[in-house]
């Protein structure tokens, strides 16, 4: 079981991802609605893993991953975005994400990504 922070500006997506992770035996320790909140909550919650949306107000997910990497270079992040084009995936991986899950996704795809990233 891992402590996970979910970052997405859509309340529906946070709820959906939280349900998937909880059913998979994980604990969602924080939910953030933008990149700035993600950085703040990361400092206070120190999660084992982060699921991160890309397109968000205030600060997008790519910028947030870069900032959190400055705090912990070993941080484990899975990007969860509907924008699945190759350039976006490359930007995310370059910023420091370990995997990229395209929305809409099936439960198994999310849990498999979490399992792989945690065991890497």
């Amino acid at each position: 079981m891992a402590k996970i922070m979910v970052v997405d500006d859509a309340a529906f997506m946070r709820k959906m991802i939280k349900e998937i992770l909880t059913e998979g035996g994980h604990e969602v320790v924080a939910e953030a609605a933008n990149g700035e909140e993600a950085i703040s909550f990361y400092k206070s919650c120190n999660p084992d893993l982060i699921t991160m949306d890309i397109t968000m107000p205030e600060m997008d997910g790519i910028a947030a991953v870069k900032a959190i990497k400055q705090l912990n270079s070993e941080v484990k992040v899975i990007m969860c975005s509907a924008m699945g084009q190759q350039g976006m995936v490359l930007d995310a991986i370059t910023a420091g994400a370990k995997d990229f899950v395209v929305k809409p996704f099936q439960k198994d795809r999310v849990l498999e990504a979490v399992r792989k990233v945690l065991s890497a």
Binding site: A10, A82, K103
Partner: peptide, 11 residues
């Protein structure tokens, strides 16, 4: 519903 729009146009 917003997310439906987001999924569609992101696709």
């Amino acid at each position: 519903f917003q997310e439906f729009g987001n999924w569609f146009v992101s696709g």
